[in-house]
Nucleic acid binder design. Sequence first.
DNA 1: TTCCAGGCAATAC
DNA 2: GTATTGCATGGA
Length: 216
Amino acid sequence: MKIIQVYQKLLKNYGLQGWWPLNNKYCPDNHKLELSKGEIFEISIGAILTQNTSWNNANTALNNLREKKLLTPKNILNADNELLTNCVKPAGYYNQKINYLKNFTKFFQKLKRAPGRMELLKIKGIGKETADSILLYAYKQPNFIVDAYTKRFFTRLGIIKGKNNYEEIKKLVEEKLPRKYELFQEFHALIVEHAKKHYSRKPYGLTDSLFNPDFQ
DNA sequence: TTCCAGGCAATAC
DNA sequence: GTATTGCATGGA
């Protein structure tokens, strides 16, 4: 099956996902909206908080920060450390994440334009997936995000085999699909939605009735 | 109780 | 360059 067909099948089955959730809401018309600087910051902070953590846990932390008025660059950097820690705690890895948040925020404060991927990757705490999440959802750059779900799902479909690294998988998708951010946003969100149901527990994909002909 | 979540950096080989 | 390990909360 071609990659574009995988996307079409997911879209037909689940519909538009409207990522990234902002202020506890998904935005189906996110594609058209011009994001404010505050919204760009919130998406970026959320991308860091959700590293290897469920969105539910990350979102609790995000709401804590919002409640304490810490969802602005200035206030995060001036925040009392104990307060910041308590806000971030539900997201897990809080000792690391409060520093990751500060590192990104210092970078963000000086930013006058959309960041480059390389610049983001230099920040301690921003790896490939987080950088691509920020670029794709906050800055609407056509970067495909590769995550653990994507690797499992594509492996199961036979799209990738064995030891593909992040950049190879990313390139594969970006070269085979129209380079539009709207498409990459929806595709990634759809993969996560589908994979949550069928690729969370080993053996991965055993219940994947949508893509396994044995179930049809 | 065990397993896993929208990873990353440091370290070891 | 690839493999392993520590980081941590909360839900299923």
